[in-house]
Nucleic acid binder design. Sequence first.
DNA 1: CTTAGCACTCAACAAGAGAGAGTGCTAACA
DNA 2: TGTTAGCACTCTCTCTTGTTGAGTGCTAAG
Lengths: 348, 348
Amino acid sequence: MKLDERKQKVLLAIVHDYIATAEPVGSRTIAKKYKLGVSPATIRNEMADLEELAFIEQPHTSAGRIPSEMGYRYYVDYLMKRQELTREEEELIRREYDAKIKDVGQVMQKTGQLLSQLTRYTALVLTPQMGASSFKHIQLVPMHVSRAMIIVVMDNGTVHHRMIEVPESITQSDMETISRVFNAKLQGLTIESIKLTLLKEIYFELTRHKHVIDLAMELIQDSLALKTEDKIYLGGVFNMLNQPEFHNVEKVKTLLGILEQESLLKDLLTGKAYQNGVTVRIGKEIKNDEIRECSMITAPYSVNGRKIGTLGVLGPTRMEYAKVITIVEFMTKSLSQALERIMQGRGR
Amino acid sequence: MKLDERKQKVLLAIVHDYIATAEPVGSRTIAKKYKLGVSPATIRNEMADLEELAFIEQPHTSAGRIPSEMGYRYYVDYLMKRQELTREEEELIRREYDAKIKDVGQVMQKTGQLLSQLTRYTALVLTPQMGASSFKHIQLVPMHVSRAMIIVVMDNGTVHHRMIEVPESITQSDMETISRVFNAKLQGLTIESIKLTLLKEIYFELTRHKHVIDLAMELIQDSLALKTEDKIYLGGVFNMLNQPEFHNVEKVKTLLGILEQESLLKDLLTGKAYQNGVTVRIGKEIKNDEIRECSMITAPYSVNGRKIGTLGVLGPTRMEYAKVITIVEFMTKSLSQALERIMQGRGR
DNA sequence: CTTAGCACTCAACAAGAGAGAGTGCTAACA
DNA sequence: TGTTAGCACTCTCTCTTGTTGAGTGCTAAG
């Protein structure tokens, strides 16, 4: 569906003005502010056409027009010009990521915070899915009397640890022996390949310390089975309250209700269709009945070229698409870099 | 200040009714619902007295009365009867804590969630302050080519790890040597006692691998210096929106604004005066100008008898004190137990 | 095709009228 | 002396009504 040039200009004016003011836009306003070189009456005619084509709608007879979801869609697809980041914004992002960020959790949180701060909407960041990993190393460290720490390192760089109780009879060198046997037998194995036969071998070599071995095995099993639980980091939920569309408490309640349901958010972020580049979903395009008058802009981030997670922004349909799209895209890159640095120990 | 018995009954009726309904309470309501055996007129006289004594107040001339902050205080100190937990509630708490909770972060989060779910207000849980700790063990684990994991175990049971880049020339047995030297020299030391002389010794023994040693030292330093950063887990912010006092968006905004300022919340939870048993602060007793018409109920939790953190509930002054106090107290015990189990590896 | 003019519509606001809840005061009563 | 019934009074809340102004659609002229 192609609109003629003047209709495009009118639609663009309506979208811009409505995004800026949240008020329905009248013909006079457009004529005055956007200088199309024609009178309000002409614009009214164009608006009547646009309304018939369902790009804009009228809240009530004597109000101006607001873009329909289809109108926003047309805007995003054909009319919108990307709005580049300012130097300050890029600078801010770089600075924040460089500062003392040492583990994945911190990066995720920082990302959520930055994303919401820059867009002034609500940010959603899904933790990276590391994928299946295999056993790399186990270490038993004696702590106090009859207490030891089991540490398991996986080859994707995650570390799991747990405190256990051990018989006092176990000596430090016993622990070293246990560690050594485990390491020798299990290195590089995934959960499927840790078979009974192997366990029997280990048991055999270490019969004296059945209890400790059981606990160690349990932690290894947990570590192998553990899908990095996909937590979602939220940022700037609070921002939404500044949007006029959330000036009534009922809507705020529905929104917060939604944001508390992690599983629902996960679905919104992990849908297969949204795995390539920046995806913009407007209003009902978010397949969810509870979320109304909202749009989502999401994009996957990756480590070493493999897509391992998604981040995104949730805002009112009346969102600053041009700006947010750029920000979301930039943030996926920054996040990818930050993660690569942490997970691979490369410089700072 | 002692009130005579009938005045106490009237005050109690007003507090109860207002807590339940959030509506000013009239003399007729009290006479009908709370059967004091006297007529509304008599109750009106008593109410006039109570108002003069500043225990209750009148929002406007033709409305009923509501408790003043002083009224709530009198109620909490003299009139209130503890409301015990139901079997179901105790059962729920026990069940939730028993379920797959393996690390401190998970416990904290679960605590916040339970606390808000049971009280229907907002829960605040401060992470445990482990206190100064000393170095226990270091381990270098070779990962991929030219990449290794450094793991540092502290004697309070925390584990820190970081991925580093290493020269390809380093072999697995080099790493073991480095680990061994570090462990031998540094075990049990706090940051103050790691002196230059010691470092020189280590350097001397391991001159070949200066780069790795530097990185290892850095992580150890970080681990020693790291005050367990005091994060605050929030639960049920959303609950507050169901309270009629937060039916206007401005108040919601102030509240959420406050809840986003971690440092402020930390101050609210860590005040020295609040370190013994359950503390109830009503309205202005919370020394903070931004928080209005709210009360806080907080209590410290401990591990092995040492108080290492605080949890609490924030709600409207019109809070169900009798119930919340019991819940907060019970939760501190449950949390303490859960933490002891995790930190000491005692059974499940 | 564009534009000025004009009648029309409708939300938003303000002012006014009741209704209802609850009070304080007074006077009678136990 | 304490309690109660009766009653006038006050004040919020709600509903109604009138007014204003923004914005439209239509018509006819340029």
